[in-house]
Write a protein that binds this DNA or RNA. Structure first.
Lengths: 216, 216
DNA sequence: CGAGACGTTGACTCGTCTCAACAGTGGTGG
DNA sequence: CCACCACTGTTGAGACGAGTCAACGTCTCG
């Protein structure tokens, strides 16, 4: 594995890592810090496709396709593990298990995006927010970034709003409702979930577990 | 390739092929006919994730993950090429090129879902519909299923509405607008595009070409 | 001939957007 | 050091897009 690692990279918050439409020679794995993937439409509106947490692989599209469908940027200082795109083919060829892993990652991502699509398409803003909080907390917990109902969430309201397909103004109102009803709050970059059951109920979460990877 | 093919299957319109949450032992490639992937929320609302056209691979999630995130059903009579899930690992191991192809398929799907997410999240109903028509026509053209601005689209309004995250009632109104403005119409299961330029303009399509697969 | 699925249209309601104002914060330059 | 500005979060009032409810027409099929 480390044969393919080119090095580590440190970037400041706000740094763009990959650009929509371009074709980077580098791929990354997030080690520390958080970021987001987004795409912007010609009319200037932005859709946040998903959030990047430690452990996430970034740039698979750049590796396989002629151009990236979205941009990736850091929202906090990040350290990333850097790979060379040109090694991708060797990476797959030399060990089928790794190829399997990559495919699993892509399929997993697809599965998540399907959920996100159902959220934006079928849930109300309140349900969407509950869904996002629940999903994030689940993932954070698995990564050891969350515990006791608390998790650091270093994003601005605009980021989450763009992810859920609503405006910051409305997100703010919905946040207030979740706060007033003592279900969850998100202030000073910290998510605080006080009523997990109510939250997941509101979110209409289908399964309470993250996708698991079957043994090969 | 044919070593992995178990056989062909014929199904009638309306037949479910894979069920959300289940774990089918079979995978398919669509040969003829059309279908759709969808997921339903606990409150009964349905999100159509995408449409299945000839050539599409169906069931990658079932193959790699413990359970399917969505269901797949046929909307017309279909013939499918059937593969055995248990052969998946051999399939990948024996030929890295095939592993690469699979990963490419998954990444491509992810890219599409990102677009769809941006559509549902950031576009108005009119723009969404234009986007869907344009995307479908592009794909149909590449498959030889569309020509001269015409393409068979054997779905009901409910299907498209669920794909775009709107109601049939509203879809109907928006269809009428597209018809009245002489941009495109969809009647009797046939899509008819009369003003491609206006349509793609309205859809805010970023690129006029389908994702291409780089040579390995 | 009746029942059900699909499409179409109207009137009204409701969720979300837009526009706007204001407060708190941190950064920058004079 | 402080005035200023940009960015973020918060809240209110009104507008608009899309949903809901309902009626009706057409078609297919038993």
């Amino acid at each position: 594995m480390s044969r393919f690692k080119v090095g580590e990279m440190q970037v400041d918050a706000g740094t763009p890592l990959l650009m929509q439409g371009s074709n980077s020679p580098q791929l990354y794995t997030a080690l520390e810090g958080m970021g987001l993937r987004s795409k912007v439409l010609p009319n200037g509106r932005r859709q946040v496709v998903n959030l990047v947490l430690p452990g996430d692989f970034v740039g698979l599209q750049a590796a396989l396709m002629s151009e990236m469908g979205h941009s990736v940027e850091a929202t906090t200082d990040m350290t990333l593990c850097v790979f060379n795109r040109s090694e991708m083919w060797n990476f797959i060829r030399e060990n089928p298990k790794r190829a399997y892993s990559l495919t699993w990652i892509a399929a997993n991502e697809e599965s998540f995006l399907g959920d996100a699509l159902a959220t934006v398409g079928q849930r109300t803003a309140l349900q969407s927010l509950a869904w996002a909080f629940a999903k994030l907390y689940q993932k954070g917990e698995a990564l050891g970034l969350a515990a006791g109902g608390r998790m650091k969430l270093p994003y601005v309201q605009q980021d989450l709003a763009d992810a859920l397909g609503i405006t910051t103004v409305h997100l703010n109102r919905v946040l207030k409702e979740l706060r007033d009803r003592q279900i969850a709050s998100w202030q000073d970059k910290v998510l605080n979930i006080s009523d997990w059951h109510e939250l997941t109920d509101m979110a209409m979460l289908e399964s309470d577990h993250l996708p698991t990877r079957p043994l090969m």
